[in-house]
Write a protein that binds this DNA or RNA. Structure first.
Lengths: 230, 230
DNA sequence: CCAAAAGTGTTTGTAATACACCCATGG
DNA sequence: CCATGGGTGTATTACAAACACTTTTGG
């Protein structure tokens, strides 16, 4: 068996991350201008080869930290892509992850420090290097699906947010309109938002109340059979 | 880059299949008695190393054919498992699939031709070799989840089936009771079953009508935004 | 004619939808 | 006091859930 394994040591493993960033303007992905002549001018996802001392989760965490400086980001394994010809320089099987960040000035300025990095609008992703468009599409699909079934959207917002911000997030990412009153009633019935008794400031109209998501409560309810659904 | 890749050629890739079989008695998994001394007496999933000329889907198809003799089985990639110590003989990253078969006498007799193969009841899987219990649990979870959201259950039944058989399938796999009249009304409203105008035979009571699932119609409806849900 | 499973409708409760006005704040 | 977005309730409709009897066949 061990000899069998050695005879198959011809394939590299990589991890690719679809890093979604969100701000009031919508959903973006962090992409890197490819340095390969074959993909000149095209962008690719952020990835790296899997190291000997880490599993793919750890690899994804490392990649996220390297490019965003952040740890503790929400992330999820999506799928593994293994077509024989997917990488022009040799056989590389890649494990795809997506992760979620709230965009702030610091993150947006990544592209000024490294001009090859770019937060591209999701709607503007038409093609990517390698099979990364395929990977991106699958990750986006899983994000959209997950957004309805799990409380992952909160990872795209600041800790304190208004109900309007939350509704905008759902509308932008799912590309659909939602009724304000029904949306609010639904969230009230789910009973997982904490009313912080704080208001927005710096707005030139009636300030909205701020809420936060109660993760603890969610896990307790989930254990009891509750299913988040929006 | 290419040299980088070569420096990481120390990890093998495998594909492991959770092959679910169903008959009127319930859901089973095909497992193989491990030949490794370390896992003496334990069973493991069916798998093999990924070959140079195939992707993981093709590898799974090959594994399924090798052990069941069947092709064209329903299968789905589930997740990739990559913990550094998951395989005692070296670094092996494995891509897990589950697949679905309707159990018949021929398939059940696999274990008489190869005494190391066994169709174990899903409820009796307490431990498996390697991290295969983890893999199995995740695949079972995905099967149960998928069963409610996608019309995959039909892959566990003969082409012609009765409504009772279909209901039994859902009840056994999801481990819950369903109301006969509500179940039938729901299926009628989904409008994806073809009434074959045939009856069961060889039963000593009123024979039930036979139906088949209309895959074509499903794909058409799906394209139009329809979502199967039970 | 008996046993065994097939087949069939109605009622009730709950959740989703559609919809319009008053409120609080900053300028 | 005006412009801007924040916040609230009700009526209607569709869907899920609960539930019991008649029908058909083989033996």
């Amino acid at each position: 068996m061990i000899s069998e394994i050695h005879s198959e040591f011809k394939t590299a493993i990589s991890v690719d991350c679809v890093i979604f960033g969100y701000d009031k303007h919508g959903l973006r992905v962090l992409v890197l201008k490819s340095d390969m002549p074959l993909f000149k001018g095209k962008y690719s996802l952020l990835g790296d080869l899997l190291r000997q001392d880490e599993n793919t989760d750890q690899s994804a965490i490392r990649i996220l930290k390297k490019h965003t400086g952040l740890t503790g980001l929400f992330m999820e394994q999506v799928s593994t892509f293994s077509d024989v010809e997917r990488h022009p320089l040799g056989r590389v099987v890649t494990v795809a992850y997506y992760s979620l960040v709230q965009l702030n000035e610091e993150l947006m300025s990544l592209s000024t420090h490294n001009s090859n990095l770019k937060w591209k609008k999701v709607s503007e992703i038409k093609e990517l290097a390698f099979d990364h468009k395929l990977i991106f599409d699958k990750c986006l699909k899983q994000l959209r699906y997950g957004l309805r079934e799990k409380p992952i959207g909160f990872n795209l917002l600041p800790k304190k947010f208004t109900l309007k911000q939350l509704q905008n997030l759902y509308e932008k990412v799912l590309d659909m309109e939602l009724d304000k009153r029904n949306f609010r009633r639904k969230l009230k019935s789910i009973d997982l938002l904490v009313d912080l008794n704080e208001n927005q400031s710096d707005v030139n109209h009636r300030p909205a109340k701020l809420y936060s998501f109660d993760k603890e409560k969610y896990y307790i309810k989930k254990k009891k059979g509750f299913n988040f659904e929006l």
